[in-house]
């Protein structure tokens, strides 16, 4: 029971991180129907930038841990969002209206570029950050095993929930969100009705990148080690999460992320750590078999 609760907590934390990345995939897919393969790398850049910003704020700037974390969070969101914008501007926008596979290949190329850029500029070695955020509660004191809930896990989940609420509000209630939904439904019609389609799509990328940046920031704090390769697997899993939840659906992405996180935590807790990735993908295949549009996806209407 204690063990179960611990895995549940770990799974939820991991799931929150996947969910944040998955939102970027699902929004971009919803609006221009492309798999933004470089999104995982954007998250990786976010992790690097947050580490650098934290170190810069605490060592060069001389701030404390709290100041360092705030600076790191804001700087990461800002710079990573800029990266997301730049990638869209350089590699995807010129390909609008091109054959469907062209942006995908361009995205894969961009992902290779970003990965190697990070490797070349920051070195291939794993970057360790000593834990800056200690402490937590002990929820249950078992005989052999006690359940821990660290402050960091609370922060991660709380931050994720807050961001989710903000973004749901933005999509549902603001002019920007309306423009995004209009572009998603019919790009040409939206343009005719005065929506600046290019700007809306750019904003979508910026928003997705900012959320991925937060995920990168949290993962740096949570695991304390990052390298240039973390983006690939996290990206695949987050995309899996987006598909699982129903691609194009914001709550779906979050739900999918949580599910993937929980599956991974329980699988590695009860079965084998080596095969946890296999478990996540197998669940995806199973879900798609019975609900081809994902858990919360709308069924596609076939037009002739």
């Amino acid at each position: 029971m204690e063990y179960f609760l611990q895995q549940l907590i770990n799974g939820l934390t991991l799931g929150a991180i996947y969910g944040l990345i998955a939102i970027g995939y699902t929004m971009v897919y919803g609006i221009i129907g492309m798999i933004n393969f470089a999104h995982g790398e954007i998250y990786m850049l976010g992790a690097f930038i947050s580490l650098i910003a934290y170190l810069a704020a605490t060592t060069i700037g001389g701030g404390g841990v709290a100041v360092g974390l705030m600076v790191a969070l804001l700087a990461t969101m800002l710079f990573t969002a800029l990266w997301g914008w730049a990638v869209e501007r350089v590699a995807y926008r010129p390909l609008r209206g091109a054959p469907r596979l062209a942006p995908l290949i361009s995205a894969i190329g961009m992902s290779i570029v970003l990965q190697n850029f990070a490797q070349l500029s920051q070195g291939a070695r794993v970057k360790p950050l000593p834990p800056v955020f200690r402490g937590g509660f002990t929820l249950l004191e078992g005989e052999t095993f006690s359940v821990h809930l660290s402050y960091l896990q609370i922060v991660i989940v709380a931050l994720t929930v807050t961001l989710m609420a903000v973004f749901t509000f933005v999509i549902a209630r603001t002019a920007l969100g309306r423009a995004q939904r209009a572009t998603e439904q019919d790009m040409k019609m939206a343009a005719l009705l005065g929506v600046d389609v290019d700007k809306t799509i750019s904003t979508t990328f910026v928003m997705g990148a900012a959320l991925a940046a937060v995920a990168g920031f949290m993962v740096t704090l949570y695991y304390g080690v990052i390298d240039f390769y973390i983006g690939f697997l996290a990206g695949i899993k987050a995309f899996t999460a987006a598909v699982l939840g129903g691609i194009g659906s914001l709550p779906g992405a979050m739900l999918g992320g949580l599910l993937i996180g929980l599956i991974e935590a329980f699988w590695s807790g009860y079965f084998s750590i080596e095969y946890k990735d296999v478990a996540a993908f197998s669940i995806l295949v199973l879900v798609l078999l019975f609900r081809p549009t994902g858990l919360l996806g709308r069924p596609e209407v076939e037009k002739i």
């Binding site: 350089v90 590699a91 010129p94 390909l95 091109a98 054959p99 062209a102 942006p103 290949i105 361009s106 894969i108 190329g109 961009m110 992902s111 290779i112 570029v113 970003l114 990965q115 190697n116 850029f117 070349l120």
Partner: peptide, 17 residues
Amino acid sequence: MLAFGGAMVLIMLWRPS
């Protein structure tokens, strides 16, 4: 690999089909 990825992007931009 950096150049390889860059080439993929550039070729796609240059000849999308």
